[in-house]
């Protein structure tokens, strides 16, 4: 018997937890989604045929995608500065990036409301100094949702990137320039590809977490920014429509799983490429 086999029993608590708290409820949802009101795929057909549901699915993907791209664009320079800053600045940056984790998401979303609404701080200041005549609509729309979500999810992008960047030896960049690459080409041809594992991990974390976001779009979004989690909540809370809500939840789960598999497959292909 190998050491690996002998220590397998250490996994029992984790297996129990996943079994009871994840597999069981998911199979229960799956069963309800295909058995009510009668056995069949009617709930799924509804989801993929009615424009309201398709619209929400599209919203979910669009918002999660935009959040991921914004997190990458903002997170990359932050992670880079963290790696190359002096130690005390690095500590400060890590602290600043982590702050969102320490406050409740509800409190944070309400705080954004206070700042962004028509009578909020930003509009007051802009109107006060005469830059604009009318208050801007910067909340209860896509902009507000993205602002709130990017703020919350940024650490999930920054830390994987940081850990990868910190291990990239400076000599790679120096070697590239020595061999004739301008700094810009050295960045795109050498530095960025070496960051890809971190960027990929960060993007996957942000995108997948964003797919199931609920409170932020509910508080900061408008009518057109409904995401799938809100829809599930609404179907159950207002209509008691468990079968359709279950089907939506299963669609979300399978979609996430598919995406995960595709990203894995793509990164494998990349590795095998000559």
């Amino acid at each position: 018997m190998t050491a690996g086999n002998r220590t397998l029993w250490l996994l029992i608590p984790a297996v129990l937890l996943i079994g009871v708290c994840f597999l069981y409820p998911v199979s229960w949802l799956l069963q309800r989604s295909v058995s009510e009101p009668v056995w069949g795929l009617q709930n799924y057909i509804t989801i993929f045929s009615k424009s309201i549901y398709l619209g929400v699915l599209w919203n979910t993907i669009a918002i999660a995608g935009a959040t991921t791209i914004l997190c990458a664009l903002i997170g990359f320079p932050v992670a880079y500065s963290m790696v190359h800053a002096r130690p005390w600045i690095r500590k400060l940056l890590i602290f600043v990036v982590l702050i969102p984790f320490w406050t409740s998401i509800l409190v944070r979303s309400f705080a954004w409301l206070v700042i962004l609404q028509r009578g909020g701080i930003i509009n007051d200041i802009l109107v006060g100094i005469g830059m604009i005549a009318e208050p801007l609509d910067i909340v209860y729309n896509r902009f507000g949702v993205l602002l709130g979500m990017v703020q919350v999810l940024l650490p999930f992008m920054v830390f994987p990137l940081y850990s990868v960047m910190a291990r990239i030896d400076g000599s790679f960049f120096r070697a590239a320039t020595n061999l004739g690459a301008t700094p810009i080409r050295a960045f795109f041809r050498v530095y960025l590809p070496l960051c890809l594992p971190g960027l990929g991990t960060g993007a996957m974390l942000v995108f997948i977490i964003a797919l199931g976001y609920f409170i932020t779009p509910a508080l900061l979004g408008g009518r057109g920014d409904t995401m799938i989690a809100q829809l599930i909540f609404e179907r159950i809370d207002e209509f008691g429509d468990w079968p359709l809500a279950s089907a939506l939840a299963i669609v979300l789960l399978i979609g996430t799983g598919l995406l995960f598999a595709i990203i894995k497959g793509v990164s494998k292909l990349r590795r095998g490429r000559i």
Partner: peptide, 10 residues
Amino acid sequence: VWKRDIGMVF
């Protein structure tokens, strides 16, 4: 650096 045409083994 990139225009010096000097090879280097690190």
